[in-house]
Write a protein that binds this DNA or RNA. Structure first.
Lengths: 80, 80, 80, 80
DNA sequence: ACGTTTGCGCTTTAGC
DNA sequence: GCTAAAGCGCAAACGT
């Protein structure tokens, strides 16, 4: 017979809480996948969409500074 | 002047929906971080907890088969 | 007493070969880190450098097509 | 006409050096893939092999302590 | 069905 | 110590 002591119970509770959160995250990830699939079905490119989302997370000024620098470096390589 | 046509609007809506989901995921990730921090403050080891959570996602039989194989390989290296 | 049979020996050899390759990779990763550090010390931005390296891996036409699409999407959001 | 100044040249040299290292890493990664494929063809399980390699990177005492802790936690969940 | 490729989340590490 | 990035491993998607 297994006797779970209180320490075990506390651990199991913490784990349970994390797993619950993980389940919610998984549902949202599925939602996100569905949205990308729907967008793709409507002719949009998921890859470019992801790039936009990534860029929009940045502060506009930071984004522009970084982009300028990349373009400067690209120029050194003749990349248009 | 920028005139957003309906295609633009549709794209913006898709992006907006994804960003909304991303926000919710971020909140949940923060929750999860908090739970691990609380568990750690109570003397539990987050690394081992993550391992348990990972293992519990597996079908028990699969988990045992994989573990047996790893132990067999460990034995070949004298890893107790 | 441990008697390593020939199967064990074969496994150990495969593992050893992989670990050897891994060691070489680690050395090269260290080299790369040093190069970035040296470039940074000379005023170059490692982040932008990594971006250039990433872009240069792509076929030029593919790169331009992808970039065009991203810019189109950015325009829909008024990102310059 | 494009005139590459010395700063451009220095940047291009740094990038070139990194790309060269990257190429070598890719070759080694291919080698590693081949080894795993060969091992698999000889009946070994790549997943378990990767686990062994991961564990062997750890200090033996650390590895045992971590493993003990995981087993303790597993016991709380009745995972044999 | 096979391996290959791509994307994604997790982990670890590096840089501030 | 904390945020950000890079490497790793898994899983799904793709085409062969």
């Amino acid at each position: 017979m297994t006797i779970s002591n209180s320490a075990d119970e506390q651990l199991k509770l913490f784990i349970s809480r994390v797993e619950s959160v993980n389940s919610e995250i998984t549902l949202l990830q599925d939602d996100r996948k569905d949205i990308f699939a729907e967008a793709k079905a409507n002719g949009y490119d998921p890859r470019a969409m992801r790039e936009i989302i990534r860029l929009r997370k940045l502060d506009p000024q930071v984004r522009q500074e970084r982009q300028s620098l990349v373009e400067t470096y690209m120029a050194a390589f003749g990349m248009e």
